[in-house]
Design a protein around this nucleic acid. Structure first.
Lengths: 204, 204
DNA sequence: ATTTTTATGATATTTTTTTCACATATTATC
DNA sequence: GATAATATGTGAAAAAAATATCATAAAAAT
């Protein structure tokens, strides 16, 4: 399995190459990508080598071919069903990302909330009571969840998800739980991001 | 200057030690921290060494002392003023983080939006018209901005911020601009986070 | 007071990641 | 068709990051 950093770069390649393609480009050189992302060309080539992306000597790489390969690596052939637990501000914002997610084979299939005013099982993306969370996961074989509940509900929510043997959690709460044998937890911490940014600006 | 990874760990140490302290702990061993964060104890000690955090042999580290040192390293003695450009779902969610940010010396001083319905200069955190953005930055010596505008406004917004010589940008749009001499841009891409999570679950 | 225990801190080792360098293949030019 | 130009792909080298090892100091036990 590849390192997190390498997968990050792969995603960055993808984003950049989508842009290039939309500008009408057909081919690209490792140098172009390197300049755009601020890394070295040899690292781009090494990544491509690792992922089995081949170009032609002197002719560079075909954008279309790279993108196909990347989608294959990321397993974007199968649609992944995701639920959102906690349909507050952030949860709602994510529900609205729908279109962008769909394009990438990520399908948000339901939301869960305790607030009766938020619950709406008839919506395009239905929002159910959190009390149904565990059973929904079981019945629909859900593998991924985004958690955007308030601090106070975080522990309970994460425990429920683990108990339901969910495979991956994108955690927006500040509570940090460790990965288990079954569940990978990816934490997003805006405050950390800001603090880091401030640190690097100050120590530039 | 330290690596991004090391600063990340420092922030993780901070979060974990806050938790420990709130549980009544006074001292901590490198082993405890290592176990909690899933890294090795020697890495914790190496980090501490680099940052000038010292413990006592056999006695471990004083939590209070570590936390003081971390705050010092992160420059949390001075309050940083931040603005939010784009007060939609995500922008509003961030405005509501206020309390958590304040605690960390991060002060959101204003929002900016083009929607007249959102503009409210009298609110606790005032929301102004985006047309005032450039002048506000100049007049108030703002160094940091969070950008959470829709895709269509991203390019324009980021250009304005760069032109206003802002030092750091936390970018929630999918547009990726490179750092300039003056401005560090930190990109947050939820779709990438999800894709990475899915990749690691699938290739576990 | 002496011995034992144990956690730090520094150094050495190992592992991982990135860069360098160049042979090779492919396209363009003459 | 031969020659020149140039971008890939790869294996070696360098750099960076993480881990292991262990002497030492400090607390606890005897």
């Amino acid at each position: 399995m590849e390192s997190a950093e390498r997968i990050n770069r792969l995603l960055n390649y993808k984003t950049f190459l989508y842009q290039l393609r939309s500008l009408g480009f057909i081919k690209v050189f490792s140098d172009n990508i390197a300049d755009a992302l601020g890394i070295s060309a040899s690292l781009v080539r090494k990544d491509f080598g690792v992922f089995g992306i081949v170009g032609s000597q002197k002719g560079g790489y075909e954008i279309e071919k790279i993108l196909e390969k990347i989608q294959e690596i990321l397993g974007k052939d199968t649609v992944q069903k995701i639920i959102i637990v906690g349909v507050g501000r952030i949860g709602t914002a994510l529900l609205e990302y729908k279109k962008g997610f769909d394009k990438e084979g990520i399908k948000i299939v339901a939301g869960f909330d305790i607030d009766p005013a938020t619950i709406d099982p008839e919506a395009e993306i239905p929002v159910y009571s959190t009390s149904l969370l565990y059973d929904y996961i079981q019945d629909n074989h859900i593998q991924f969840a985004i958690v955007s509940v308030p601090e106070s509900a975080a522990q309970q929510t994460l425990e429920t998800l683990k108990a339901a043997h969910i495979y991956g959690i994108l955690n927006f709460t500040t509570l940090r739980l460790k990965n288990t044998e079954e569940t990978i937890i990816s934490n997003i911490n805006i405050e950390h991001e800001l603090s880091r940014l401030i640190y690097f600006v100050k120590n530039r």
